[in-house]
Write a protein that binds this DNA or RNA. Structure first.
Lengths: 305, 305
DNA sequence: GTCACGTTTGAAAGATATTTTCAGAGGTGA
DNA sequence: TCACCTCTGAAAATATCTTTCAAACGTGAC
């Protein structure tokens, strides 16, 4: 049989979802005049009909409830109620098939709803790209180093600084000694203290942020295990990194600076790193996490309910 | 005849097409026990529930018809009939897209590659849920207020503080006067300065973080336009918010605290807010953005290769 | 502990929607 | 023209959904 339903590439129809129009055409000749009017309305605007009661559809088609029910029966449903459910499904199906035009850049005059859709789509894309491009061997090595580190220093400036703080905050929560450095001078000063068994993590999208490379270089020279989280694995920062974790570089637009999407990518990498460490230190991490929840609980006012 | 084909991307907030699962999670905490049972059944097996009458679903969940109707109302539908139609749509929707393979929670003994895949998937899901559940009208109003604000104060503590800093950082970049407050005492002290024409933004996942609610309340009392970004739109924080932007509540596990996925959701909302504001202030925002790029350029060492 | 009060809940009444029934309208061929 | 059949919709019957209301439950105050 040759189904040439052109609206969807998925003509799959176990009960009778998308093949409704075809069914109407097939059965139309065996219908009476009134029933044809109903069937026509149903096939022409499934979504609209799904919103109508049996009485409403009868009025719309200038027929009676009885006729509507008869038509539903002829189309293979137990009654109008079930036809209506099928129509609702069909409507949703059609709407989803309508390819969302979210691949375009965000423009100045985009309505706010489009901004939300495009942004969410882009971020999802960034996540997928990052996950696909992440070297799990490098990640595993980084996790191993961090899980057993005496102390962990994180360097990041600008947008990356927040990512670094996020990482340090979480590592602290599971009982590790982690610190995020924002001030480049203090970062270098502290890096001097590092030695073998310590871990230094530099976060920079461009891979060439001097303020971040410098402390990492010092840590590297001191014998610490160094990790770079960067979108440019071939950049200068990698020179001083034992392990390089690559973030993806999403497309940017005038309204959406690179810092925005790189942050999403960086956060995913950082979260993976964190969870990996939490797994390895589960014995101590789990109680530490519970403890921090409880400590916070009293800071929340009781809910209204 | 009047065909009212609704083909806008995000028709309106009351009926939720695919965002149902997210909506259930968001609203679940504010539900009573019986209603939670119903909501759980609905979210767990939309297709199955779509086949049930109100009586059937009441029996299945061991509750009464009244409770089922109440739940449907809470989820934003006029009654059970409409919820059922939406469920039918959702079921059809789900059937078209194949079931994802990475729905399991992250376990302690997952290999690192699985962690990456699951985490990325969860985050993507969180983004989709957030985008679907975001009220664009509220967002638009928030954007309008922020774009014309004399000054913008952002409150957030803990994980949300980083989100707040991110927002403030970006708004500063396009020439707005924005400040992220981390210290609750200073936040209140500063909130006293606010007045009509100013904007205060509180970020709290739980919706009941006293340290964040307090400054927002003060700002609200002073006549500033207040915005709450929260996962609990029915929480105490909303009392003092002119506009509530809802973040989605993703499932959490022992290794993946709620703070982690809420952060993703919050960042998306914040980014949408930012871009909305950037659109509205494009004349000044665009040059400001370019200027900040150039100012940063010399901080990057020329790349190797 | 006990009481008062607000919340939650389901049984049953009430309102709608759907299905069935049935009698008349409309058509067709002798 | 008439007998006969099909088609049709009004209205009754049934199913489904919604609302009401009082009892059960939980919670905080005393």
């Amino acid at each position: 049989m040759t189904n040439d339903v052109k609206e969807s590439f998925n003509p799959d129809s176990p009960p009778a979802p998308a093949a409704l129009a075809a069914k109407v055409r097939t059965l139309a000749p065996s219908m009476t005049r009134s029933m044809q009017r109903v069937a026509e309305a149903v096939a022409g605007d499934p979504a609209g009909c799904a919103a109508l009661t049996v009485t409403g559809l009868a009025e719309l088609t200038g027929t009676s409830e009885a006729t509507v029910v008869r038509t539903a029966r002829l189309l293979g449903y137990p009654g109008y109620r079930d036809l209506r459910l099928a129509l609702a499904g069909l409507a949703a199906h059609q709407q989803s098939g309508r390819a969302p035009a979210v691949t375009a850049d965000i423009a100045v005059d985009d309505p706010i709803a489009d901004v939300v859709a495009k942004l969410a789509y882009d971020e999802q894309q960034t996540l997928a790209d990052t996950a696909a491009g992440l070297d799990t061997v490098q990640l595993g090595a980084a996790v191993a180093a961090a899980a057993t580190a005496r102390r962990i220093d994180v360097y990041g400036v600008g947008a990356s600084s927040l990512v670094g703080q996020d990482l340090a905050q979480k590592l602290l929560r599971i009982g590790l000694i982690a610190h995020a450095h924002v001030d480049p001078h203090l970062a270098v000063t502290n890096a001097v203290q590092l030695r073998s068994g310590d871990v230094a993590i530099a976060i920079t999208h461009s891979g060439s942020t001097g303020d971040v490379i410098e402390p990492l270089r010092v840590a590297f020279d001191r014998g610490a295990t160094t990790i770079a989280i960067t979108g440019r694995p071939d950049g200068p920062v990698s020179q001083y990194a034992d392990h390089v974790l690559t973030t993806s570089t999403a497309r940017e637009s005038e309204l959406r600076p690179a810092a925005m999407s790189s942050r999403t990518s960086q956060l995913l990498v950082v979260d993976c790193l964190f969870i990996g460490v939490a797994q390895r230190t589960y014995e101590t991490a789990a109680p530490a996490l519970s403890a921090s929840y409880e400590a916070l609980a009293h800071r929340h006012t009781p809910r209204s309910r």
